[in-house]
């Protein structure tokens, strides 16, 4: 704690707060089996020098401690952080997106760059990456989404590009794996498209935003029930729930946020719960009914934070806790 006098923790029975010296955006919870869960926090400073801090959460004492040895500099703010979905005992791996897809080996006392993956053969630059997703079923695969309208599928074990697809007409904003070879992406062109690596020539549009070209910003695929995914729109308080069996018509639109929605996460252990967080400072947990009523769906429960919530993580490795980020704070909320 000596090296982090700026950081303080507030303890309560059902939530824990961690304060970082800078604004936080990206966030990831480790899947590695450990008594103290590792959480990676990416800073959001609008310049070159940014950082990623690793903290640990002790569920017994409800405390969050930074591990200064594991902090590292990151060029520009990471747009997303994610730990290896199924790490080996020998060491965890953290991935980040931004100017490149970067992999870092996380040990107990050190963190070291493993690789910087650039999909451009002709240039030493890679088109900026908006997001990525690590395939849980096939962990050697990472899919990245880029502002150059493409998605790139990496074989990170060999450090080579498996395939690169022009996925959309405009910037690709997010990508999510469904199965080992199936992924979906959302874009500024307003569409959700599903791709199957066995047939790279075709994609299926399963949703298009009502006002043409209202950008779709984020995408979450329900890992407990792959029929469902959720997306959010630019400047909208809606969470759109899609059923891949009925393309174009959303099965539900959740509209109880009183500001725009910034982040969504499906429950890791239940197929019908989803959490959302928005500019109204609220995190809402929704239970999706079998049949939606005429007046729409009300959330089941809510949490009000101190400011606009920018990030949300609900991890299978810690299903009882939802992590949110607002301002320079990260909070773990007991579900």
């Amino acid at each position: 704690m000596d090296s982090s006098t700026l950081e303080s923790q507030v303890r309560s029975d059902n939530f824990v707060t961690y304060e970082s010296p800078c604004t936080l955006y990206s966030m990831a919870i480790s899947s590695a089996a450990a008594s103290r869960r590792r959480i990676a926090l990416g800073s959001f400073i609008e310049e070159y020098a940014n950082r990623v801090d690793i903290v640990t959460f002790d569920e017994e004492t409800l405390s969050i401690k930074p591990i200064p040895k594991l902090s590292f500099d990151h060029p520009y703010p990471p747009t997303k952080l994610m730990f290896h979905p199924n790490p080996k005992l020998s060491g965890d791996i953290l991935a980040s997106s931004g100017d490149f897809l970067r992999l870092y080996g996380v040990r107990d006392n050190s963190i070291e760059p493993i690789s910087v993956l650039n999909n451009s053969k002709s240039s030493e630059f890679c088109a900026p990456l908006t997001s990525f997703d690590w395939n849980e079923v096939e962990p050697r695969r990472i899919g990245t989404s880029s502002i150059d309208t493409t998605c790139t599928i990496w074989d990170v074990e060999r450090g080579v590009v498996e395939t690169q697809l022009i996925a959309h007409d405009k910037e690709v904003h997010d990508i999510a794996w469904g199965e080992a070879g199936v992924f979906a992406s959302v874009s500024a062109d307003g569409s959700v498209r599903v791709f199957d690596l066995r047939d790279k020539e075709h994609s299926t549009i399963i949703y298009e935003s009502p006002q043409p070209d209202t950008p779709l910003l984020r995408l979450a695929w329900n890992k407990q029930d792959l029929r469902y995914m959720a997306t959010i729109l630019m400047d909208s308080n809606k969470i759109v729930i899609l059923d891949i069996r009925s393309p174009t018509m959303p099965v539900a639109e959740l509209e109880r946020h009183r500001g725009s929605v910034n982040a969504i996460a499906w429950a890791p252990v239940s197929s019908q719960h989803i959490c959302s967080a928005g500019d109204d400072s609220q995190a809402l947990i929704w239970e999706l009914p079998a049949v939606a009523g005429p007046n729409g769906i009300d959330p089941m429960s809510m949490y009000t934070a101190g400011a606009e919530i920018n990030q949300l993580q609900w991890s299978a490795s810690m299903p009882d806790w939802i992590a949110i980020a607002f301002n320079n704070k990260m909070q773990l909320l007991k579900v």
Binding site: F44, T79, G98, E171, H173, L217, D235, S260, V261, D279
Partner: peptide, 17 residues
Amino acid sequence: SQMLLKKALYEVPKMHE
């Protein structure tokens, strides 16, 4: 609306190039 999210999607890439 969606300040940080939009920055992450639109301004951070611009910072790169």
